Simulated scan of single mutants.
Amino acid sequence: MIQRMAVNSSSSKAWCVTLVAAVLVIVADKGKPEYAYIAMLPTVVFAALDAYYLALEKAFRNSYNDFIAKLHSKVLTETDLYSVAPKGNLSYLQWESLKSFSVWGFYLSLAVLIFVTKTVAIG
């Protein structure tokens, strides 16, 4: 589960770059630099999606750590064996994930690149 969340996070970055590049190429091809900021939409959406995946990853790690702690302290119950639910407040974890450098560093850099492309290369 945890690896799947990490792969989804990586895929969201790849898809975001692809969509932003496609939007900027179409905008440049049509000669409409005022539409370059449309590329910010996938940037914001994928940043939120990436933060969600990182929050889920953290929640599943919390669940795993709780399971291991119960196992070592010998208080593990039968229901714990079949419980694969994320632990923690997902809203809080998502907000914390947005503060992660792997999210804001990437998407802020992409937003700056969109701005620079709009002002220098396109218009």
Rank of each mutant, 00 (worst) to 15 (best):
I2K: 05
R4G: 01
M5V: 02
M5S: 04
A6C: 07
N8C: 12
S10R: 08
K13T: 05
A14G: 02
T18D: 10
L19V: 11
L19T: 10
A22Y: 09
V23E: 03
I26V: 11
Y35R: 08
Y35V: 00
I38Q: 02
T43Y: 05
V45N: 04
F46R: 09
A47C: 09
A48K: 01
L56C: 04
E57C: 03
K58H: 12
N62D: 11
N65G: 05
I68H: 13
L71Y: 10
H72Y: 15
H72S: 10
T79I: 07
D80G: 10
D80C: 05
V84K: 07
V84N: 08
V84H: 08
L90H: 00
L90N: 03
S91G: 04
L93T: 06
L93Q: 12
Q94F: 02
Q94A: 11
E96A: 14
V103Q: 15
W104S: 13
G105W: 14
F106Y: 15
F106Q: 14
Y107R: 12
Y107G: 07
L108E: 09
S109Y: 05
V112P: 04
I114K: 00
F115L: 13
T117K: 02
K118H: 13
T119I: 04
V120K: 08
A121P: 00
A121S: 03
